[in-house]
Design a protein around this nucleic acid. Structure first.
Lengths: 194, 194
DNA sequence: CAACAATGATACAGATCTGTATCGCTGTCA
DNA sequence: TGACAGCGATACAGATCTGTATCATTGTTG
């Protein structure tokens, strides 16, 4: 804690940042530790001092993604304390924007699940937890909106979000980003009307 | 053609079958050609005689997936000549069943896109074509159903299908399979009512 | 039977990948 | 000043991966 020299966290942080960018852009299996070392400008020894194995580094990469994702989510949530419906559309707004960004290359969690078939891979567990957290939050929002079946709404909305995130602009063209809110509107009115 | 000994197509077929199963189950980057050779019981030389590079083999794997997928689709389509709506629900039925199958490990096309970032990878092009074909067929169905905006329906339905296919039962539990038809019903009635 | 085409078996080249071992340097702090 | 912790640099071990070279074997076909 306070005994750690400042240099230490800088090196660790630089490695994780560089690795995260490369892992997301190229895929974790396509990026070797030597490339991470070269790009981050640290010694290979330092990488293995902070991350025992490459799998640990990959896991930390996904954990960082998780933190950033929910931090953003919480910010947006805090900005819409009145209406859960308004919050949902605001969440879908920045999700759509993210998908439409130039460097977007799919959902990190889904990509990891595609790269590693083993359910016991440490990074895969992080991915599973992420999706469960998403469903829990969607369910909470559905309850606040007084929808008839919050569980059903959360699962359906989760599928829609995954579909938009999964391939993004790569397999689809500009499509997914614009349809998130449209689909949510349809789902909501279906659970209100009749 | 008629000059080819029968053995030739058998060997090629055995290689492709084995590779396809391994590639889908473990991921293409996780499976080496040596494993394909060992599992299929052929000589390594034979593999490289029929497939110049591993990327070619991966591409053929996705092409085969494509063939099987649309053959199944066409069969179901032929079984429902009267109502486009009935056909759509039948298509979503077997898609849902496929997702719920024990060995299901995501959408092959999305998985390939996750594994290879290069847009010029031969297998990726097959994946992009596959998704475009899916949208085209959905749009045709939407037109037959006399929906207001077939293009919008096709894109939205495509996102939903991708979401259900992408992570399947791995990141979600039993969810996606059951919601395909439910979501389609909601979408359709939204484009009919009012 | 003889020519030939396809396969099998094996060894190997060359690259790449994860992880380790070793040593020297530097800044901190008692 | 002197012990020490963290980092950098380099070399390397050991495994794995794609792709090739070589040669024997088999089955078909004229």
């Amino acid at each position: 804690m306070s005994h750690h020299p400042q240099q230490a966290v800088d090196v660790r942080e630089r490695i994780l940042r560089t690795a995260s960018e490369l892992f997301y852009r190229e895929g974790t299996r396509a990026v070797g530790v030597d490339l991470v070392v070269a790009q981050s400008g640290v010694a290979k020894t330092s990488l293995y001092r902070h991350f025992p194995t490459k799998d640990d580094l990959i896991r930390e990469f996904l954990l960082r993604e998780d933190e950033d994702f929910w931090r953003k989510w919480d910010e947006v949530s805090a900005a819409h304390p009145r209406s859960a419906e308004q919050e949902l559309f605001a969440q879908l707004q920045w999700l759509g924007d993210r998908i439409a960004r130039p460097g977007y290359r799919g959902c990190p969690q889904i990509n990891i699940a595609a790269e590693y078939s083993d359910n016991n891979h440490p990074a895969r567990k992080v991915a599973v937890t992420h999706k469960a957290e998403m469903r829990a939050r969607l369910k909470r929002l559905a309850k606040s909106m007084d929808l008839k079946d919050p569980e059903h709404f959360a699962l359906a909305m989760g599928v829609i979000i995954d579909g938009a995130l999964s391939s993004g602009t790569a397999l689809h063209q500009k499509g997914p980003a614009r349809f998130l809110q449209s689909l949510a509107r349809t789902l909501i009115s279906a659970q209100r009307g009749a």
